[in-house]
Design a protein around this nucleic acid. Structure first.
Lengths: 166, 166
DNA sequence: CTTGGAATGTCAACAAGGCTGACGTATCTT
DNA sequence: AAGATACGTCAGCCTTGTTGACATTCCAAG
């Protein structure tokens, strides 16, 4: 998986030109990646920050505010502003921890699940189209490179959530 | 989930679970992707917007303000705020067009090239490490999926610049 | 029981970098 | 001469990030 053969193999894929193409591919692809959810969100006065919160709450129901802070990598003040609107609008609810009553465990309400659905359906549709067009082995490569691009800390979180409990 | 048998191939790579992993991989990888340049930029009161401008001016020297607007997908007011600081700091210079004197053709100065160097060195280093760890065929797949993920318009721009003049 | 620290919430203030709208100017094109 | 185009700019607004300060609540250690 790692090095095919640092011996006499072509390392042409490591030219600056190829790397630059990869950089621009990331830039343009990320725009596409967020475009569909962004359209849905702006119709309801939400932003990407709300999307991220909803995504990770859906993905790890009962997660605490502290967990979310770590995953999202923002300050609590910033996250709190977003969470507050989600509470007010009845998309997310917080339950006080049983063991540790300081903690707030976050859950999506039905309404929250609806939004999450709409957002991830849109995003998955694009992802599915890309995956299908590229084929399974390309997808494998895609994931391999992305994982290698993460910071160690981010990779840990990514993999920690990878096969959570399913 | 989708269609099990479009020909006998396994379409297991199109499961919602796999798509979700791809989505999160994009999220975390993009953070890593921007982390190194961000660190350099914040030491000098610049932001990602400056990075993007510098990158594309370096890549297409003599490009016009209008071109840049199209590529970056922002408003001229927003871009102008960034360009103004780049002019003031002597990183970018604008030359009036010979054929059409309304156009401003943008070029990096030596100082601009230095910054661009520093930024892209950092970003390429991470990219190179990821590429090397993943291997050539993974890289191929990576690019294929990213291209498929772009909007048609973005892909046009990406490919238009792809092999520019070399 | 008291005290320290952890987890959380909140107020205030600020900055970057998006956006819209309106207007001005130089320059091309017709 | 008139209109369109390329660009710049002023003014104002929004989201989402930041710091700093402070209150609350609770756990755990003395």
């Amino acid at each position: 998986m790692a090095e095919q053969s640092t011996g006499g193999e072509s390392l042409l894929f490591l030219t600056d030109e190829n790397l630059r193409k990869g950089i621009e591919a990331m830039f343009f692809a990320y725009r596409g990646f967020t475009a569909d959810p962004d359209r849905i969100l702006e119709d309801m006065d939400y932003g990407r920050a709300h999307h991220r919160a909803v995504h990770f709450i859906n993905r790890s129901p009962g997660t605490t505010v502290g967990n979310l802070l770590t995953i999202l990598g923002v300050t609590k003040q910033s996250l709190n502003r977003v969470l507050r609107t989600l509470f007010e609008d009845g998309l997310v609810e917080a339950r006080i921890g049983k063991q540790d009553k300081r903690e707030r465990h976050l859950y999506l309400t039905d309404k929250g699940h609806s939004l999450e659905r709409a957002l991830s359906d849109a995003q998955r549709a694009r992802m599915r189209a890309a995956y299908r067009a590229a084929g399974p082995s390309a997808v494998q490569g895609f994931r391999t490179v992305l994982e290698a691009m993460m910071d160690a800390e981010q990779r840990r979180q990514y993999q920690g959530l990878k096969e959570g409990s399913t």
